[in-house]
Design a binder for these strands. Structure first.
Lengths: 144, 144
DNA sequence: ATCCTAAAACGAAATCATTTCTATTTAGAG
DNA sequence: CTCTAAATAGAAATGATTTCGTTTTAGGAT
């Protein structure tokens, strides 16, 4: 099983280690974004030994390879999200329940080009994220 | 002098203390974004006593009031930028020389509304920032 | 199947930017 | 000029994240 994940790892030029696969599994099952420590706590029972630094390292590498996406959180801690959408797009993240919804790519690419043209600079990356409360949390009193 | 800054502080409901004014002055003179510690090092000679926590606190408060803007940096440290543009807009930041250029507001507001409508959520804030190399740094070998 | 090597993981310790806390000082309204 | 809430000092704590030297392992080569 997890052939999908193993393939994704291979495609990213990364070894398909059991820990990496477990991280991907766990994060895929997660309804929203999660922190390295949370994932570690849930995963460490599955392994004789699993270091927190390993989780940090892998999440960072997986995110750099585009297998995972990173959430920009107001508290500046690290959170990751499993997103199978391979198209260029962005996210709406709920600050209450942590759910993540896809936002179709908007006109940023055009904006990038315009900025490049106008000021002669070179845009290397961009950040676009909407923060708020999802439907459920907006209705209820944003319980946590 | 700095009547502008004093007024801005008053408008934000903040006392116009000498240290706040100095922080605004220094940051306005800065060509790009700066870190709390950098500002502190440059400012502490002007005062008998000036604590680093004071600089942190003030930058955060000033940013929350909209008098300053915060830069989202890949290294996740805090950087601030004095931006006199009171219109809603975003920034292109040079990761090499730290220069910041304004980007006119693009269609994010429309996107926000669409997301709200479609998923019933409530967008509380958004982040949009382009990262890259400005004209000068793209030409030269991005010297630092 | 076994070897071999670069990649991955360990985990204790370090880092270090940022925040907290309590006492002291000060801006500015009245 | 007083008074009080707001602001500051500064030492100490925090705690998420990273480093480092060692050990283990995935997976291509034999």
């Amino acid at each position: 099983m997890d052939q999908r994940h193993a393939s994704a790892l291979k495609a990213a030029g990364m070894k398909a280690t059991p820990k990496r696969l477990a991280i991907l599994e766990m994060l895929e099952a997660e309804p929203g974004y999660a922190s390295p420590e949370e994932l570690w706590k849930r995963l460490k029972d599955r392994f004789d030994r699993l270091g927190l630094p390993t989780v940090y390292r892998n999440l960072e590498e997986l995110s750099a390879s585009g297998v995972l996406s990173k959430v920009i959180h107001p508290n500046r801690q690290l959170y990751y999200y499993f997103c199978s959408n391979r198209e260029h797009h962005h996210h709406f993240v709920c600050l209450s329940c942590r759910k993540v919804e896809d936002i179709p790519a908007c006109g940023i690419e055009a904006l990038e080009q315009e900025v490049s043209k106008r000021n002669g600079g070179k845009v290397l990356s961009h950040i676009l994220q909407l923060n708020g409360l999802c439907g459920g949390c907006a209705d209820n009193g944003e319980k946590q």
